[in-house]
Design a protein around this nucleic acid. Structure first.
Length: 305
RNA sequence: AGGGCAAUGGUGUAAUGGUAACACGUGGGUCUCCAAAACCUUUGUUGAGGGUUCGAGUCCUUCUUGCCCUG
């Protein structure tokens, strides 16, 4: 019998972190973050990382596990998440996987069996000198029936890298947990408003200063730009590429676009049970989790108390 | 007040008088190793009126709006 994992997936600014804390407290749980940027030390405001106070004593895992500039991929995430979840379960507590990076969540809940071939920096540097169509032609030469998107440079390069390391195609999935997936979002107009307000607040709280401090500490602008959104636009602003108002406007639009893509990802997952955030999501989720866990593991009533 | 310039999708631009286009955005979607990434796809436009012409975004004219110069 597989052990149980509760997932709280949601868009930006949806309130999933706060909900996660409430539910973890009610069900003797711990949080495993599923976010590709909150893994970095010092990326707090920009990544929307939960603060120490907001955690209310609930242990959080997979935050601050890399230094800015260090490489981190889905494979790294999956390995660390398995480790954290198994550890939580071994201690008899309940794991909550909370985050907005759909691919990372799926890598754990769907049990992707990933290649053990590590990224090869030297090979990648060599592949970087080719145009994407050339890379795709090289891939077709080896695997004529490949279904990789010819225009997706990242994927084509990774496929070539795996081939070079002697790897074959993808292995069948091996899910290792019984999963309850809860979804958190808002009607589009409300979500947009929440995103704007949250952006304003974070700028007031020193989000630009946070990025400046990283630049001052020698973190490369190229790395920050590659992280996208907050780090990308703030780096552009701080290095004089764009003005403050322009940055704010384009960043707000980019975050909304990202929220749309998050929803596109989550919507296709029929297992997600969407909570009514305008109702009482804690009570609604509490009932679902109680049922999922069979009632035995509950440590207290979920709710306002 | 006079003179000049401009007005094209949500935004920025393109179109020898001959099928109004491109980028970004919006909406939808794809995605098993850089994923807050990369990619696919849809949508929508000539400021208002009149004139010339087989045919006007393009030429003429009136109006409206904006910008610049002079006072």
């Amino acid at each position: 019998m597989k052990q149980k994992l509760t997932v709280i997936a949601g868009t930006n600014a949806s309130g999933k972190s706060g909900l996660g804390v409430k539910l973890a407290k009610a069900f003797d749980g711990e949080i495993v973050s599923a976010d590709s940027r909150q893994v970095y030390v010092g990326m707090d405001l920009g990544s929307g990382k939960i603060t120490r106070e907001e955690m209310e004593g609930v242990p959080h895992h997979l935050l601050d596990v890399r230094r800015p500039g260090e490489f981190f991929s889905m494979a790294d995430f999956q390995a660390l998440a398995y480790e954290a979840i198994d550890d939580i379960l071994a201690r008899g507590r309940h794991p909550f996987l909370v985050g907005g990076t759909g691919l990372y969540i799926d890598s754990v809940t769907e049990g992707y069996v990933l290649s053990d071939k590590k990224p090869d920096a030297a090979l990648r540097a060599r592949l970087e000198t080719y145009a994407t169509p050339e890379l795709y032609a090289m891939l077709r030469e080896r695997i004529p029936e490949t279904d990789i998107d010819p225009k997706n440079r990242h994927r084509v390069m990774r496929a070539l890298e795996k081939l070079a390391a002697g790897d074959e195609g993808p292995a069948p999935r091996q899910p290792r947990y019984e999963v309850l997936k809860l979804g958190v979002t808002w009607p589009r107009e409300i979500l947009k408003k929440r995103i704007d307000e949250r952006l304003e607040r974070r700028l007031r709280e020193g989000m630009a200063e946070e990025v400046q401090a990283m630049l001052d500490a020698g973190v490369s602008g190229e790395f920050l730009v590659k992280l996208g959104l907050e780090y990308k636009y703030l780096t552009w602003y701080l290095t004089g590429k764009m003005g403050y108002e322009e940055m704010k406007e384009e960043l707000a639009a980019a975050i909304k676009r990202f929220a749309k893509r998050q929803m596109t990802w989550f919507r296709k997952d029929p297992r997600i049970i969407w909570l009514d955030m305008e109702g009482d999501p804690v009570a609604e989720a509490g009932a679902l989790i109680r049922n999922f866990l069979g009632g035995a593991a509950e440590a207290g009533m979920p709710g306002n108390s």
